[in-house]
Nucleic acid binder design. Structure first.
Length: 569
RNA sequence: GAUUCUGUAGCUCAGCCGGUAGAGCAAUACACUUUUAAUGUAUGGGUCCUGGGUUCGAAUCCCAGCGGGAUCACCA
């Protein structure tokens, strides 16, 4: 990031100074006694009613002695009307001519006291009697324009800028704000649903000595006092089950989980999962529970059980279709997986055109077939049940078939959004399953689980029959808000960090090899310390510095990449 | 990680068969007492992502790199 200010930023700083010269504090400390909000004013219009509103100035239309402006508050926009001679009844018209017309900028927070009226064109507006600056904005907003047909011009659409500067995105793109309001509603609806049933919201460790409960690469950290490695959790399942052992009937947690894996439009390194565990239930009960919950969320958030996603309309009214994995594969491939050996499954994959490798066991092969041939077909909500045992090391064996588990996943719009089990509570079976995982790991499967001895100990004390379910909140929100990218439903999706100018600096740069004539400019170009400089990529530093040189027309030779790389050794 | 698209003013974009930059909005100045994409007139504003190459001359062509998007791979 450059430290240079744009033209408009310079002008705003000058306005700031002029306001101070006029005795106006651009950042006053006292509260502002807001009585009304834009949406209430529009919905419950009362002619002549006195109001006091506050918000951001979003547009200004000056017509000589009268002006219209728009104020954006947390509920929306409202038009306000300024009349010069009412604001400035005496000879001195400074407040209107200078303060309002010149020194206020779009984006400033102002407070308005006035009364409601309707303009000749019929727009509900606030007739301003008094206004005050509440906070000055020094950076121009990327403001789009909306025409009379509601069409948006010059929309702020660049994904990089929108995600990096979500605050600006939220200000100028109302639909973005709407998405996040819905996200909050998804969560509060679920929370209410669970609380009404008497289940308890809990918190479990994010820093875990073993990243258990799922198979994924964890983020690793270190605890200094104990001098031990710790992991950011990839799941919280094993801790919630410990609480069921401890005697709670129903526990749930909205959890941030962390996985050190790739990022794409459905994956962010940190993401939110809701997991719930209920004692004395099985996976059949959990299916009923899940479909009721989803239906309720859809109605509360979208007002309907029909949700539009891309080109599809999805009906989320319970009950949902249920089909076993065996029947699903049979339906879409004609192949019956029942009782097949690993060799037969390899052969089947081959004939279906699915790539395999020798490390894949039966469970993985079946999962591949399902993923390739079946999963995408389930647009309408469907419970896929009875997964092979190799894929589900924490799930109870199926009551009718020891090769299977009592597990379901909920597919919607061709994607998995929830996963649930009748939980495995046989400690001996669980220990064997973990050992199976260790063997898979030795065979080369890097997704196998670690053994959590403390969890096994808790099971040995006895866990009641329990069903548990996890649901990806981000993906559920994507579904409910018709977004195809996870970045659209996270306030601050993970991005490569930006570099910023921070504080003063010494010329310790020279010690790592920065030429004398460059040291000062290295600092000005945004690297406030040697550490910061060396944290960056040499290629990036090289560009940053030469860019700075070019912009400021420095009379120094451009840096070569290998020259910059030498600083890093 | 692979492929591909992309990077030009505060924002959205044009210019890309090479001749050292344009539009709309935003900004500045003036005019205008019910406008609403307000209007009219005038003005200012650029690291054309970075470096190198080709060339008399590069935003434009070539090479290398950086950021971002999309698709794929990876990923309970």
């Amino acid at each position: 990031m450059s430290i240079e200010l744009s033209d408009q930023e310079v002008q705003r700083r000058e306005s700031l100074k002029k306001l101070r010269d006029l005795g106006i504090n651009p950042y006053p400390a006292d509260l502002y006694p807001v009585t009304s909000y834009a949406s209430d004013i529009k919905n419950k219009f009362e002619d002549g009613k006195k109001v006091c509103i506050a918000g951001r100035l979003m547009s200004q239309r000056v017509m000589g002695k009268a002006s219209f402006a728009e104020i954006l508050d947390s509920t929306g926009r409202i038009q306000v009307y300024f009349n010069r001679d009412e604001i400035c009844p005496g000879e001195d018209k400074t407040l209107y001519n200078d303060v309002f017309k010149k020194l206020l900028d779009l984006g400033d927070f102002i407070g308005i006291k006035g009364y409601l009226f309707t303009t000749q064109v019929g727009e509900i507006s606030v007739h301003v009697e008094e206004f005050s600056l509440l906070s000055k904005s020094l950076k121009p907003l990327p403001l789009p324009k909306t025409d009379s047909e509601g069409k948006v011009h010059d929309a702020f659409t660049d994904p990089e800028l929108r995600y990096r500067q979500r605050y600006a995105d939220l200000i100028v793109n109302p639909h973005v704000k709407e998405t996040f309001i819905k996200r909050s509603k998804v969560i509060s609806t679920m929370r209410n649903f669970f609380d009404e049933k008497g289940y308890m919201e809990v918190e479990t460790p994010i820093l875990q000595p073993i990243a258990g409960g799922a198979t994924a690469r964890p983020f690793m950290t270190h605890h200094n006092a104990l001098d031990v490695p710790l992991y950011l959790r990839v799941a919280n399942e094993l801790y919630l089950k410990r609480l069921i052992v401890g005697g709670f009937d129903g526990v749930y947690e909205f959890a941030k989980d962390f996985r050190n894996e790739g990022m794409d439009r459905t994956h962010n390194p940190e993401f939110t999962v809701m997991e719930i565990y209920v004692a004395y239930k099985d996976y059949n009960w959990m299916m009923d529970f899940t479909e009721q919950m989803i239906e309720k969320v859809a109605v509360e958030v979208t007002g309907s059980t029909d949700v539009t996603v891309g080109e599809n309309t999805i009906n989320l009214k319970a009950p949902f279709k249920r089909i076993t994995m065996r029947d699903s594969i049979l339906e879409f491939t004609g192949f019956d997986i029942n009782g097949k050996s690993e060799e037969e499954l390899h052969a089947a994959c081959k004939s279906l055109g699915i790539d395999t490798n020798p490390t894949m066991g039966k469970g993985k092969l079946i999962d591949e077939i399902f993923g390739e041939k079946c999963e995408g077909n389930y647009i309408q909500p469907t419970f896929i049940t009875d997964y092979p045992i190799e894929m589900s090391p924490l799930c109870k064996r199926h009551r009718d078939n020891p090769e299977l588990t009592e597990r379901f996943e909920l597919m919607v719009n061709g994607k998995e959004i929830a996963n649930a089990y009748s939980e495995l509570n046989d400690p001996i079976d669980q220990r064997e399953r973990f050992e199976e995982q260790m063997k898979l790991s030795e065979k080369g499967d890097d997704e196998a689980m670690f053994i959590d001895q403390d969890f096994l100990r808790s099971l040995e004390y006895g866990m009641p029959p329990t069903s548990g379910m996890g649901i990806g909140i981000d993906r559920l929100v994507m579904l409910m808000t018709n977004n195809s990218s996870i970045q659209e439903v996270l306030f601050f999706p993970q991005m490569r960090p930006e570099k910023f100018q921070t504080g003063p600096d010494l010329e310790s740069f020279k010690k790592v090899g920065v030429p004398g004539e460059w040291a000062e400019h290295v600092f000005k170009a945004g690297y406030s310390s040697v550490d910061e400089l060396l944290m960056a990529k040499p290629t990036s530093v090289h560009q940053q510095l030469n860019g700075y040189r070019k912009k400021n027309k420095l009379e120094i030779e451009a840096l070569q990449l290998d020259e910059v790389q030498a600083w890093f050794n």
